[in-house]
Nucleic acid binder design. Structure first.
Lengths: 231, 231, 231, 231
DNA sequence: TATGAATGAGTGTTCATTCAT
DNA sequence: TATGAATGAACACTCATTCAT
């Protein structure tokens, strides 16, 4: 039994600009909480974008968020949970980009245009979420967790799979999954490389990404097997 | 998820294998040193294969190598240098696999066979060096280090570039580099995914890797641009 | 094992039960306050019974009490004050059990029956207040606080002292205090051990407690000094 | 992957006064280690004596020992292990004091003298090991661990049990254990109280301890049951 | 007045790195 | 030259306490 020195009150956390009553009132409680939550997530995103997932520290995130450690741990059970939450936010953000099934025009579009339609939003996403490639990699690596255990990965593959299934109706589901996983790995890998590379290299790599995706789509759609044809 | 402060140090360039007096006698010193060096590297490789680069500790490596910390730090200025040295050893190991220029038969081989000729040895390499994908990634990520600052990456791209240049004599060097970087990223990304995935998924992913590589090679060789053709 | 810095603060003496205006009306305020106060104390008691004084957290207590942290700190200056308040409530609860002076029949009872009369209610008390032994110990240990600084201890010793003084009229007060302190320590120590032990061991230890107390009482009453007699 | 700032070398750990070759050479390695081990334990003992087990911090202990945190954790897996090690050292220190079986003279000694023979060394021990009562309590409390799970307690009870068995040959083992546990609790509780109390109160409490122990021994030896006799 | 979100100093613990031996 | 004990800065995380609402 003992007591802490009761020193107090240096850093007022920011008076919170009173959300200007945006007509979309949630309970103030919830709003505040949600706000904090997002602030911390934003801070984590910044820090990760700068130094990567492994070097990110919870202290740095809290400091960046302008909040105390306790706030961070109110929302996230631990560092991993914080990264996972960021991954989930990415899932939500990406969902609209990958709801190909909802956009029937994609199903009849020339493959090169389809590649644009798929890659361009992703490029924009990578640009606007510079921590994404770090998180993508981190949640796919840890320990024995393979790429296939992770919701982020799963979610993206599922979307792509759905679209492919629409374009190639007769395909066997298992084949489809392999194609989808491949396409996802292809695009993610290439874009990760593109955004890790010096800006000058970026656009060429993006273009190659589209070419590869187009070729791969063509292959799937035509049922071509280059390993047979080009032997 | 481990953590450390992100301070850099230039990573002493390695004791430079002591130019080996004319070419004779009394290399016990040197030999011993070389032996230790390799033992430590072997230990690091094992540890990394098991728990990844970030969770690898220098203590664990020294213990595994059966040597003291001092020996480790005699050879490697710091942890980063250790990983870099491992990367360089990978470069040396891979060189024979990627000296496509030396194997003229490759230049006239059907593209599907070429894909086999390229991918199969790499698959074997990934299998026999389970730390490789970790090192590849680590050495391409940290902090501001982009993919293109790294010798490992550079070395591989250069090899591929050379081979491409042989097959597509008229290509512009800059184009070639983009093609090479793309092919490297493609194959590495896919094989990393394949070896991170459950074994059952491995072979299908390897096959897709070959298909993609074949398609991409065909594209380069024929000068086809799917973004134009399939628009 | 939790930990905290050992800084002391005088433990605000408790809001002093607001002398209760003459004795009438409108105690809702006071009542509400009193109710909360007791609820928090109940919650603390439960938590302490489960995990001990050191591992009890104010957050857990407030949560268990169904009140906010603020309420808790309205009544208790700090964690120590909370425990102290619990100790004082124990004093009040125990008072009836230890008002031996008020029960003249005790003064002429055979010593074995007296031991029953003393120990049995205490056993019942230990059973019904499973936090008691934790509080007893906590309040007797910390830092430089000796057993004798504490009201809980003092209060119990005083009661016992009073009774002894009734049975052994001629005794010197100082002697009496030592006897009383010894008897208290004896009974508390033994019962604490009994209730910390597996249930199977409990009753035997309680019986030994009574035997010891009987022997000790006999010694005091007869003026026997075993250290002389059995030399 | 990253690196720490390599700042270094402020606090040389103490040149270790070169043990003056005490003829009892262990391997220097082992000696150094043993020395450190004991130093840390000594430091822990001091800190615990001052502020108790719960408020003791590993940092404080390391600082007191004049060593880095790492040294502490080289020897002790965690804080609990440190306390446990201290408890074990107490067991070792106490063993000679409690090897009653080895001292046949005790078995024929008058009970008051026996009480001296038992209590006096313990008093000296309590005096010389001011952390003992804290450790005793700590290792008997944690979580659900009852008094009877702990080696320290067990060890002491076993010793006492052995001696009793020598003095009261016919006793049933189960009875004996209860007697032993009672005697141990009695003496420990009383001495803890004595040493927690102001010095002035100490000696009287010690004397009462002896009286109680004498009475209890007499009871056991004579087979008297005060609960029957004094009814 | 009551609430509970927020704070942040402090804790246990790890591990890259150094250096006495 | 090799060893591995020692160092200590840094990290993840907790919880007593405060105060805006």
């Amino acid at each position: 039994m003992s007591t802490r020195t009761p020193v107090r009150r240096p850093a007022r956390p920011k008076p919170a600009p009173r959300p200007a009553k945006p007509a979309r009132r949630r309970q103030p409680q919830q709003d505040r909480g949600q706000k904090r939550f997002e602030e911390v997530l934003d801070a984590a995103e910044q820090v990760i974008a700068e130094i990567g997932v492994e070097d990110m520290t919870t202290n740095a995130v809290a400091a960046r968020a302008g909040s105390g450690m306790g706030s961070l741990y109110r929302f996230f059970a631990n560092k991993d949970a914080l990264v996972a939450a960021l991954a989930e936010r990415y899932i939500r953000t990406m969902r609209p980009l990958t709801e190909y099934a909802e956009r029937p025009e994609l199903h009849v579009m020339p493959l090169a245009d389809l590649a644009d339609a798929i890659v361009d939003p992703l490029v924009e996403f990578f640009r606007s979420a510079p921590a994404y490639r770090h998180v993508w990699h981190a949640v796919n690596q840890p320990g024995s967790k393979s790429v296939f255990d992770c919701q982020l990965h799963e979610s993206v593959v599922a979307s792509v799979s759905a679209m492919m299934s629409a374009r190639v109706p007769g395909a066997k589901p298992k084949r489809l999954r392999v194609h989808a996983a491949t396409a996802v790995e292809l695009v993610h890998g290439m874009l990760s490389a593109a955004f890790a590379a010096p800006v000058a290299e970026r656009q060429p790599l993006i273009n190659e990404t589209k070419r590869l995706l187009t070729l791969y789509s063509e292959m799937i759609q035509t049922g071509d097997d280059p390993l047979v044809r080009l032997r």
